[in-house]
Structures are given as C-alpha cells and as structure tokens.
Design a protein around this nucleic acid. Sequence first.
RNA 1: GUGGACGUAGUUCAGUUGGUAGAGCACCUGUUUGUGGCACAGGUUGUCGCGGGUUCGAGCCCCGUCGUCCACCCCA
Length: 403
Amino acid sequence: MIHPLRGMKDLTFEDGKLFVHIVTTAIKIAKRYGYSYIETPILEATALFKRSVGDSSDIVSKEMYRFEDKGGNDVCMRPEGTAGVVRAFVHAKLDRQPIKQKFYYYGPMFRYERPQKGRLREFHQFGCESFGEASVYEDFTIITMISQIFHELGIGFNLQINSLGCPTCMPPYKETLVNFLIEIKNDLCEDCNRRIETNPIRVLDCKNQICQSLLVNSTKLINNLCEGCDTDFKKLTKLLDNAGITYKVDTNLVRGLDYYNKTAFEFVSNKIGSQSAIAGGGRYDKLVEFLDGKPTPAVGFAIGIERIMELVQMPEASREGIYLGAMTEDAVEKLFPIATAKRKETKVTVEYNAKGFKSHMKGADKVNARYVVLIGEDELKSGRVWVKDLESKEEKTVKVEVF
RNA sequence: GUGGACGUAGUUCAGUUGGUAGAGCACCUGUUUGUGGCACAGGUUGUCGCGGGUUCGAGCCCCGUCGUCCACCCCA
C-alpha cells in the first residue's frame, strides 16, 4: 500500500464536507465585502518568496519545497498566498489603475516542517488581499470580516493586535532594541541570540521565561510609533471598541513574514493545542513596491483551514433527495429513467441490487434520503411506484408518469 | 532541525512473566417471505505499520525504518 507523504492528508467524507463548508462560508462573506476570486500558480520562482516573505523567516530559509525544474529554473511550491497574489497584481499592471482591488483565494500551501497537530506540510489557507486602500478603516473592515466569518462558522476566538510601525519609526526602534539586546545577550537563550542577527523583533515573542523576564524593561514599539502610525493605531482600537469586537493589544505580537508593517493581528484559539493561530494578517504597504510595482498600500490575512476544522460544527444535515430501489431483478432497469428525470431537480441515490424491502428502508435511511421510492412485483405489473416520505411517514403508490 | 510518547479489525481500544489475537461501536444476516431509526440473536473483518535480529516460539524483547501524536522551533 502506498501511503500519502508525511504531513499530507486526504480529505474524505465528513472532513471533505467540513472543508467545503468552511470555504463556501468564507467566500460568501468575502463577496459581501467586495472581494473577487483570484487563482495564482502553486509553483513560483524562488526569488518571489525570498524578496517578499524574506530571508529572515524560517519559511524561506529552511521550509520551502524548493527544486530546479527541467528547464533549470529555481522554483518553489508556494509556502503562503500573499506573495503570489501581489506578483499577479503587479504582473497584470493593476498597480497602474486607480481602482481599488480586492481578491480572495484559497488553496494548498507547502512548508517542509515537522508535522504536528494543526501543522501539516501541505495545508490550506483561505485568504484575502485588499490593494490601494491606505486608510486604517480598511484594516478595521478586514478584522470585522474575519470575525464575521468565524461567527458564521461558530468559532470562538481571541483577537490580538499590534502595530509594527512604518519605515519612519520602525528602523530607529529596531536599532535601540538591538542595542538593548546586545547588552543582555549573555543571559538570553540560544534562539534569541540567533534572532538578534536575523530578526530582533522576534525576541520579544520568545516563550522562554528567562528571556521574557529580561525583556520586561525593554522599550516597546507601541510607545515609539511615529505620529501617523500612532493615530492610526488609536483609531483602530476605537473602531473595534465601538464595534464591540474584543481584542487584546499584544506588544509582542510580530508577524513572521517580513513584509508586514503598521497593523498586525492574529486570531487565536486556545482549544487546538500549541498551533493556536487560526488566522493572521496585517498591513503590507511596501510589498507591491518590493515586487517592482508602483507604491500601493495593501492589507490582507489568511485563515488556516485545517486549524479551524475541528472547531467548526457542521450544520445538521436534513433529509434530502430520493432513494430508488427495486425488489425484483426485472424492475432494476425501470429505475434509471426515473433517476435521470429526478436528477434535474434533486439528489437521487440508485441501488443497483434488487433486495428486500427492509434492506431498502435501511439503505434509504443511511444515505439520509427524504423519499424512498421502490418498485416491487406488484408495482412492476401495474406500472406504479411506491413512495414514502421518511419525514412525514406518508406513503402512497402512484403511476410512474405522475411521479 | 531538537526532545519525548505511540503504531493491534473499518473505528476506538484491551492483550498478564514471550506460548499462535479479543471487546465496544460500525458492517452483514435474521427475528418481521413489504415498513427505516430501537431491541434481541447470529455472523464477517487482521501482513499486530514495515524490515531485520534474539528465541523452540515474538503483538510483547533488541536494532533499523516509515508514520502518528505532544512539546520546542516556526506559523495559518
């Protein structure tokens, strides 16, 4: 038997239904906010992710499915969705149009990680990207949209927000932080020492108790924002307050991908183990420029579909469609014209084997059919079918033509 | 990449100091030769993850390998 590769999963039956339910619900809401579908390739030039996600992230430095294709190109399976969407946006020259563009997407992402609960090597994200809107109102709207999606799916969450500043206030802050970190370097954990070089902001996020105790006195970016960033962040918190969306300002919240600035947020669940982030996103005003487009502000997010799957309750399925069966071999082929006609309007299950009455009843119950339609010897002779509504329990025998 | 736990029927799991594999659920059949969900009775189901080793004998012990899970790391 050939097994799926490590960290890759087949979705069948209940899981498959749940997946579709999540995606269709998210799409329904996204459309209401003016998003339209975009599909981008799974395979992209490696350079795309190096330039957007950034070398400092583990995603790029060690988790990509990267290889040389037959044409000698350095390519990668996409580890996340935003880079491809931005690339497509620039490639279609949408950055030269004054219209604001909003896209939603969903599909597989690939990261070569050690699998664990809520962390697969091939996983699926639903995401949205909004281009051309610099206003913090859009950040607020996107957060509102995600909470609406989660509400619709019946998922509880905690929202954490932070501001990562902009090119005006972030670099000087980073410098003072690095200086501070170098002083306490010897007491920080091994990982943090590495982070000072690669991505010092991440040190703030370290889960090591000793590191955290040393960082209590570190200056926070949130207190060192430039005027523009500061007023926007205050606006955002006020908008969320007024909308009744509860959140926590987490000054240690850093997005893992390099392209984020200003608003950063994460939706977290405490019910799914250590991989608790169920959605994450923020503003990335410099990314379009980074990928050779005209400067275009943008905000976006992604939801981890597998991570929310165990949190979502499927709405109860009601009885639907028709179960067709024959109780004598001669009647089996009479079922097909009926099935074809009825399939124009509803779901039809046809049992090809002639079998006993009770078996058919059980079979109909199992596929959750609303109606059982059977042809036995009597019905065959009289050109009728026997019909029972499994909900109201009413039954009747009618001419095939009228049914 | 690091540390730890685990892998037995479709599924959830039991399996004693090594002696040729079991339960619930599910499934099939019957009780009811034409009335589903319930009940009762009977029945089917296994490369014990895979490969090697120790042993008269391995589900159990040893080594390897693949996979799953948990934590770190990372992130959705």
